[in-house]
């Protein structure tokens, strides 16, 4: 059932040609609001990548060993969301205990990530494309890194443009979208190298 694509291709494609933000429009709300400062954007990107990998792999297991056998595919949305919420909560507690340095930097982003559509989105893409375990793992890792890359780029540009004089009304989300559009156009130049969608 799993498509016959090399997991490494999936990994590279999800960063470049099928970037979560620039091609799939996922995780936009936090992408826009946290990208004004490079440091925080970097922190959020790290947190998103971490959560993505853990939740996608976990959801793959739940899908394969619980949802499919029990034939409750129509409940998948609820189950995935619950798993994501539970995982994030446990992750926060674990990080606080065992990696306090990391928790000090990422801790406040974790509750925000639970409702980030990128997390649920990656899980749903994985289900629709019937990826197997390795493919899911590399898909999640690549998607996370791609998202991280995109928010870092936007934050870097916004920081540089922070003191530029702009026409009225442009500053803020209007500008961020236009910048993102230009970045998306640039990335289209890569299309054709790897195709997974």
């Amino acid at each position: 059932m799993a498509p016959n694509i090399n997991p490494l291709i999936i990994f590279l494609a999800s960063i470049i040609t099928s970037n979560m933000v620039l091609s799939n429009f996922l995780g936009m709300c936090s992408y826009l609001s946290v990208s004004s400062e490079y440091k925080t954007a970097n922190g959020l990107g790290m947190a998103v990548t971490l959560v993505l990998v853990l939740t996608t792999v976990l959801n793959w297991a739940v899908y394969t060993y619980v949802i499919l056998p029990l034939e409750i595919v129509y409940l998948q949305y609820i189950i995935f969301i619950m798993v994501i919420a539970a995982l994030v909560q446990i992750l926060e507690m674990g990080m606080d205990r065992y990696t306090p340095d990391l928790h000090a930097k990422l801790g406040i982003f974790l509750p925000l990530i639970t409702v980030n559509c990128a997390i649920l989105g990656v899980t749903l893409f994985m289900v629709i494309r019937h990826y197997n375990f390795i493919q899911s793992l590399l898909f999640a890792l690549g998607s996370g890194l791609g998202w991280w890359l995109a928010i870092n780029m936007l934050a870097a540009i916004r920081e540089k443009m922070a003191n530029v004089k702009l026409p009225p009304g442009l500053k803020g989300p209007g500008l961020s979208f236009i910048i993102t559009g230009i970045m998306a156009m640039a990335f289209i130049g890569f299309s054709g190298i790897f195709t997974i969608q």
Partner: peptide, 25 residues
């Protein structure tokens, strides 16, 4: 390009810009 992602970004960016400018004025 209109069917591709960048156009979506540009159009929504433009709409937000327009409404923001109107509100500011």
């Amino acid at each position: 390009i209109m069917i591709m992602p960048p156009a979506a970004f540009f159009i929504i960016g433009g709409l937000i810009w327009w409404l923001s400018a109107r509100a500011a004025k």
